[in-house]
Design a protein around this nucleic acid. Structure first.
Length: 292
DNA sequence: ACCCGTGTTCGCTG
DNA sequence: TCAGCGAACACGGG
């Protein structure tokens, strides 16, 4: 599930659910993973969630101390991996299955106590406490490109970087998080379809016009997917003090134009058949007739 | 039983 | 030094 749109929705939910609220308790339940550990989690106690930022698929939370005497600021760097999600539950509800981290927030105004859970079945995601919230000191984060939703896509920068990928297929190239962070396997196929670009083309061969189309196609796909997620989230009871998950419900129809639609007629040209190929070990979907 | 997977990192190779 | 590749991580679902 989690590519840029899903993580964006998670960030908005976290801010709405727990923004400005103070952590009363923090615990982790996973037996074998080293991260986080109780000692690291304890640094969050009594601190207020003052910032929720997203760069690509990375969630950056900032917590500030209660005291005015400059109590230490603490950050959390969280990634949803393949199966991670954030879930809100009432305080006395049972923890969801595959819960890894539980954060209990204090009552605030008319809001009830709530618990937020970081849930991750496959354990490819993580939740790391970052002392001082010095995110930029983390090499992986520093290497990320500018977030496309907030800062747009710098065509010149993108073109210059693609030019260095001589042989790499464009679909594989754009999944490099240093280029356009947040592009995952679904959004890569969707963005290329919207841009009418063949995913097999060597990255360095794209013209400037094609690079522009690609940037627009990716942004359009991000925004389309985000809107779908917002609607699905609102429909399942956003605002009510009930259990809410932000991910699409299982069994909901595939909202994508080509992803996971092998064999279907092309929704644009109607002349081609959506085809699945494997690139760098991942599925790619495209229309051989109108993606050139 | 077997294979697949919406992500990332690491080690190897040329 | 580096682009590119394949494996590894873990585990439910089809």
């Amino acid at each position: 599930m989690p590519e840029l749109p899903e993580v964006e929705l998670a960030a908005r939910h976290l801010a709405r659910w727990a923004g400005r609220r103070r952590i009363r308790a923090a615990s982790c339940s996973e037996p074998r993973s080293l991260e986080p550990n109780p000692a690291a989690l304890s640094r969050l106690l009594r601190k207020r969630l003052t910032g929720v930022e997203r760069i690509g698929k990375n969630l950056l939370l900032t917590f500030d101390g209660a005291g005015k005497g400059g109590a230490a600021r603490v950050g959390v760097w969280s990634h949803l991996g393949m199966t991670g999600k954030w879930v809100r539950r009432r305080n006395d509800d049972l923890p969801p299955r595959f819960s890894r981290v539980r954060l209990d927030f204090e009552r605030e105004g008319s809001l009830h106590d709530i618990s937020l859970y970081f849930v991750d079945m496959r354990l490819f995601g993580f939740f790391r406490v970052v002392p001082g919230a010095r995110f930029s000191a983390i090499p992986v984060l520093a290497a990320l490109g500018p977030d496309p939703l907030r800062e747009g896509i710098d065509i010149a920068r993108l073109a210059a970087r693609l030019a260095r990928r001589r042989r790499l297929p464009i679909k594989v190239a754009i999944m490099d998080q240093a280029l356009i962070p947040g592009v995952g396997n679904i959004q890569a196929s969707e963005g290329l379809f919207r841009a009418k670009i063949d995913p097999r083309r060597p990255a360095a061969e794209l013209s400037l016009a094609e690079t522009k189309r690609l940037a627009r196609g990716l942004l359009a796909s991000f925004n389309f997917t985000l809107r779908r997620l917002e609607n699905a989230s609102a429909a399942t009871g956003g605002g009510a003090d009930r259990d809410v998950q932000y991910v699409e419900e299982p069994g909901s129809p595939n909202p994508f134009k080509v992803y996971d639609r092998a064999g279907a007629p092309c929704p644009r040209c109607h002349g081609g058949t959506i085809t699945r190929i494997v690139q760098a070990g991942r599925s790619t979907y495209f229309c051989p007739a109108c993606q050139i």
